[in-house]
Design a protein around this nucleic acid. Structure first.
Length: 156
DNA sequence: GCCAACGTTGGC
DNA sequence: GCCAACGTTGGC
């Protein structure tokens, strides 16, 4: 199976690319959206590329690159009453929420800002540039992944 | 199964 | 802080 590419959103105030750089890797817990869950659970594989996106940031945009380093497994926070991600309806026999681990790969010298992506016609058909695109885990085409990485590495 | 009410996301 | 877009919940 060929390598796939993803974009994963995080608010830098909660967890930033700097945090990931420091930690080396992290559990992508707390996803509570079924579409995002399905993508992680059903379609992610070890080695996949991840654009790490800062949402609710100034400016919002892709801050760096990570990669998937685990198979999907049940998000333990759903069963933890003390967690803010606790889901009282989650059943350990049939977990509702899944996650993967991701590892730091690189931090861009400059964030590839959302307005830049919107201004560049190459990204017209990228999910994150669409109006009202709230999904926190999105599939990304290889051409978009490669072009964003190129922009992120470019010195400006 | 419809849909109004409500909650959340996230750009601006 | 506003609010449009969207997802979820729950009454019926």
């Amino acid at each position: 199976m060929a390598r796939r590419y993803w974009l994963m959103k995080s608010e830098p105030g909660t967890y930033s690319i700097e945090d990931l750089e420091e930690d080396g890797e992290t559990h992508w817990d707390g996803v509570r959206n079924y579409q995002a869950r399905n993508l992680m659970r059903d379609d992610m594989q070890v080695g996949d590329g991840v654009l790490f996106y800062h949402s609710n940031a100034d400016p919002p945009g892709v801050a760096g690159v990570a990669k998937v380093v685990s198979k999907p497994y049940p998000d333990p926070t759903q069963f933890d009453p003390k967690s803010k991600y606790h889901d009282p309806k989650a059943d350990p026999a049939e977990p509702r929420w899944w996650l993967v681990d991701i590892a730091f790969e690189e931090r861009f010298g400059n964030v590839v800002a959302l307005p830049e992506l919107k201004d560049d016609t190459r990204f017209d058909d990228m999910m994150v540039t669409q109006r009202g695109s709230r999904l926190s885990v999105q599939p990304v085409a290889k051409k978009h992944f490669d072009a964003v990485v190129k922009l992120g590495r470019k010195r400006r």
